[in-house]
């Protein structure tokens, strides 16, 4: 029973890391940049959602506001901050996205104050009961899992089936060839960041009832999301999902059996193990090419 509960807990937190990882992967695929500001962006959009929920009383309007503001924020960041440094050395992008993270955290602190606020879940957070035992799985957890799965399915459809998705894949794999066939690569990159912004915003709203909302409340989520993306191999959306679950389950098992104080070490161990065995991540295609 204990094992089952740890597994359930691991899955429902892992799916959120998967969503954050997915946002990072979308941006990495489009622009080869690791967006360290993702945690700051989803923090801002979660504050927006909280404001809308407080004002209207509607969770759904709040969620919608987060998704829309995440989409817009992602697009604006790409156009204004990333576009000028896209062709520069990779370190420029690292500094810019880290700088943006600090900037967003500072702004949030000035606007909303430094103390964390609670965020209402859509559904109850009391676990289901089976017989006398209470499961570590609540209606709210089911909603979280379902919401992330729906968004992932939509993204798969977008990429696999639609012309927009084909443009995005072509631009990611071979920008020059994409341009030859009339793909306006700049717009596609903006769209990639915008989608990532929206996916990150979803993750923020879903995890907020557990972490609370504050300038630094999502730092851990970003770190675990990043670990998940790397485990999956930065390039692969399915890898991000698997990576998120691996990280979530590892954290859950390690803190359950060994104590929560070593949970972070468990995550580190998984990251290092995966990187030693498959340096490009579990789902990456090998980067060695035959010439």
């Amino acid at each position: 029973m204990y094992f089952i509960n740890l597994t359930l807990g691991g899955v429902s937190s892992g799916i959120v890391y998967a969503a954050v990882a997915l946002a990072l992967v979308l941006i990495w695929r489009a622009t080869r940049i690791v967006n360290f500001a993702q945690g700051g962006m989803l923090m801002i959009t979660t504050f927006v959602a909280l404001g809308v929920i407080d004002a209207t009383g509607s969770y759904w309007l709040g969620l919608l506001a987060a998704l829309v503001s995440g989409f817009v924020l992602g697009a604006v960041v790409e156009r204004v901050l990333v576009r000028p440094i896209e062709n520069g050395p990779p370190m420029n992008a690292v500094i810019v996205t880290l700088g943006l993270l600090l900037f967003l955290q500072a702004v949030a602190g000035m606007v909303w104050g430094g103390s964390p606020r609670s965020f209402p879940p859509l559904l109850g957070i009391k676990g289901f009961t089976v017989g006398d035992a209470r499961l570590l799985l609540s209606p709210s957890d089911l909603f979280v899992i379902g919401a992330v799965l729906v968004v992932m399915a939509l993204l798969v459809l977008l990429f696999r089936v639609t012309p927009v998705g084909l443009r995005m894949r072509a631009a990611a794999f071979s920008p020059e060839v994409a341009r030859m066939f009339g793909v306006r690569v700049g717009r596609v990159l903006t769209l990639g960041w915008a989608l990532a912004g929206a996916v990150g915003a979803l993750a923020g709203v879903l995890v907020a009832p557990a972490t609370f909302v504050g300038p630094n409340q999502f730092d851990a989520v970003l770190v675990f999301g990043f670990a998940a993306a790397v485990v999956g191999g930065l390039d692969s959306p399915p890898g991000a999902v698997v990576g998120g679950l691996v990280v979530g389950l590892t954290l859950s098992y390690v803190s359950g059996y060994l104590g929560s104080e070593v949970a972070l070490l468990g995550a580190l161990a998984v990251l290092m193990t995966v990187l030693m065995i498959r340096p490009n991540g579990l789902f990456s295609r090998t980067s060695v090419r035959r010439v």
Binding site: P163, L166, A170, A178, G182, V183
Partner: peptide
């Protein structure tokens, strides 16, 4: 999908 690129524009 490579061929589909030809009608994307």
């Amino acid at each position: 999908d490579n061929l589909r690129l030809g009608v994307l524009w």
